[in-house]
Simulated scan of single mutants.
Amino acid sequence: MSDVERNGFISKVIGPKKRWWAYRARVKELPEGHRAAVEAIERCLMHFVPTDGDSNAAMFEDLADLFEQAAADGTSIRAIVGEDPVEFLGTFAQNYSEGGYVPARARKQLAEAIARVEEAEASAT
């Protein structure tokens, strides 16, 4: 794959690089538990077939918005994603992407990551 093809593919997956790095900077500023949850969701979202770079950039930016607001309000991760983080992921992603799927392994990893964040939040209080 040439650099041009690779950059075109990356742009489709994550959107324009400038928006991606701005999103990553926002995620980095989240409290530890919220950041860990966003990163787990992000890994799963990468399995969705991109429709276009702008839609995917908007999807990640909206994810950051959601978790920034939740962190500011003191909302727990479980209150954001509900009892089934995979269902949350599917509902969230279908607003932005046609097609795509989350492999069973990625669904399991997401559920485990959210459970670890929830345990860490519980032990911190």
Rank of each mutant, 00 (worst) to 15 (best):
I77D: 04
Q109R: 12
K108V: 10
E5S: 07
R35G: 12
K12N: 15
L110T: 02
T51A: 09
V4D: 05
R116Q: 06
I14C: 03
W21P: 00
V38H: 10
G82C: 04
D65W: 04
G8E: 09
K12A: 09
H47Y: 12
R19M: 07
N7F: 09
G99R: 00
S11W: 06
A25R: 15
T91A: 12
E32P: 05
E87L: 09
A22R: 13
R107S: 15
A106I: 01
N56H: 15
K17V: 01
E112T: 07
R26S: 11
A113C: 08
L63F: 13
S97V: 13
A37F: 01
I41M: 10
A64S: 11
C44Y: 06
V38Y: 12
K108F: 05
V117G: 10
P85C: 09
T125H: 15
A22T: 11
R107M: 11
V38D: 11
K17N: 04
T125R: 15
D65L: 06
T75S: 00
P103K: 06
A115I: 00
P85T: 04
V49R: 14
D65Q: 05
M59R: 15
A57P: 02
W21N: 13
I114L: 08
A115W: 06
E119W: 10
E118S: 14
S2M: 02
F48W: 14
K28P: 03
V4T: 12
K28D: 15
P103M: 05
N95D: 02
P16L: 10
M59L: 15
D3Q: 07
N56W: 14
N95W: 00
W21L: 13
F67R: 08
E68M: 07
H34I: 00
I80F: 05
E98H: 11
G82Q: 04
E112S: 14
V81C: 05
V49L: 10
D52A: 12
N7S: 08
G15L: 07
Y96M: 06
F92M: 06
I114P: 03
I80S: 05
K12G: 14
F88I: 08
A71K: 01
A58Q: 11
P31G: 11
A124M: 14
S55E: 10
S11V: 00
R35D: 11
G90M: 02
N95R: 14
F88S: 08
G82T: 10
E119P: 01
P31T: 10
K18H: 07
V117E: 04
I114W: 03
A57K: 09
G100H: 02
V49Y: 09
L45V: 03
A70W: 01
N95A: 10
A111F: 03
L89R: 05
E5C: 01
E121R: 11
F60D: 04
D62Q: 13
R116Y: 00
F9C: 03
E29Q: 15
